[in-house]
């Protein structure tokens, strides 16, 4: 399923919330919408499931103008997750997850199976959580239920509005990682709203930056961090060169295709390598830190198994930070 905003505008009283937004999301893509608070992210997102009606312009789902699809019909096939979760407090976790399948009049057995499957998928064992009440859940657990509920009827499109914004940073990282795992198997078309740049860089196939209702830039994370536009430069921060390094592996910088390991996801890559050396699956940001710590301008690069691969120099880092993303 593809999505598209075509010259979409929305004004609330005298405030232009969304100003001529044109943007496409391709099938299976995870697009992150980011920007300062009040820049129009939520309004843009809600245009897709018709919670907001654009004043002019249009939104298309799979080439079809959403204003021509009955709102309830449209929404039952678009998963929707919001920051405040909005679980139904008078329904058990299982009934919350079953909500959309019930609207779609699935058979009871099918719903039961699906609820179990989904709770397990989001890391909440069905035996333990199916009958729990939302008021008993921790923030992270509630948010997982929110994701399970949105995925219940297997919608091809998922809209997520700061879904992990209300949980503590540690839980947020776990949720992000798990969401990436789920998304890698499900391959939904996702629009993910956040105001957290790290989250955007971690999750996004592409990142669309909004400012005062307008689309300021849209690019893959690596490119965005090189964008010279003053607003984007400011938005991506003083340390954006470090963010760039954090996305690249030591292996890639020395011409050895090594992905950053799961352990390196949070930048906490267990190097486990002897002094003066760095593992090829560590990030360049970690390598830089090691160099600074050791007062060296080069490190031995070793494979995760401990085999010597080559030398990583400060030149390599400068080159990587300057652009040409080796991916």
């Amino acid at each position: 399923m593809t999505l598209e905003w075509q010259n979409a505008c929305k004004t609330f009283t005298d405030k232009k919330a969304v100003d001529n937004l044109s943007l496409e999301v391709s099938e299976g893509e995870l697009l992150v919408l980011i920007g300062p608070s009040g820049c129009g992210k939520t309004t843009s997102l809600k245009m897709i499931n018709r919670l907001v009606q654009p004043d002019s312009g249009a939104v298309f789902v799979n080439g079809r103008d959403v204003s021509e699809v009955p709102a309830t019909e449209l929404r039952r096939h678009i998963g929707y997750v919001i920051q405040q979760v909005g679980l139904f407090p008078h329904m058990s976790v299982a009934d919350n997850v079953a909500a959309v399948p019930r609207l779609l009049k699935w058979e009871k057995d099918r719903i039961d199976d699906r609820v179990k499957e989904l709770l397990n998928l989001v890391g909440l064992p069905a035996d333990e959580f199916a009958d729990a009440w939302p008021s008993r859940l921790s923030g992270g657990e509630a948010q997982r239920v929110g994701v399970a509920r949105a995925l219940a009827a297997d919608p091809p499109i998922l809209l997520m509005d700061e879904p992990f914004g209300a949980v503590d940073p540690l839980t947020r990282e776990v949720l992000q990682r798990e969401f990436l795992r789920i998304q890698s198997t499900l391959g939904k078309t996702v629009v993910f709203v956040t105001h957290d740049l790290d989250e955007a860089i971690r999750l996004g196939d592409r990142i669309a930056v909004m400012n005062e209702g307008r689309l300021a830039a849209v690019a893959a994370p690596g490119e965005l961090l090189l964008n010279a536009d003053p607003f984007i430069r400011d938005f991506t921060g003083e340390d954006r060169a470090l963010r760039r390094l954090a996305r690249l592996s030591v292996g890639a910088a020395i011409g050895e295709a090594t992905p950053i390991t799961a352990a390196g996801f949070s930048g906490g890559g267990e190097s486990g390598a002897p002094a003066g050396s760095v593992r090829t699956d560590a990030t360049l940001k970690e390598a830089l830190s090691m160099m600074l710590e050791a007062g060296e301008t080069s490190l031995e690069a070793v494979s995760p198994a401990g085999r010597r691969i080559g030398k990583l120099t400060m030149e390599d880092l400068l080159e990587s930070a300057a652009g040409t993303e080796a991916s």
Binding site: T72, Q84, F88, P89, A99, L103
Partner: peptide
């Protein structure tokens, strides 16, 4: 009633 709960209900396609 809590607004997020109502928004979730509308957003999932309840009439």
């Amino acid at each position: 009633l809590p607004e997020p709960v109502l928004e979730a209900a509308r957003g999932m396609g309840m009439s």
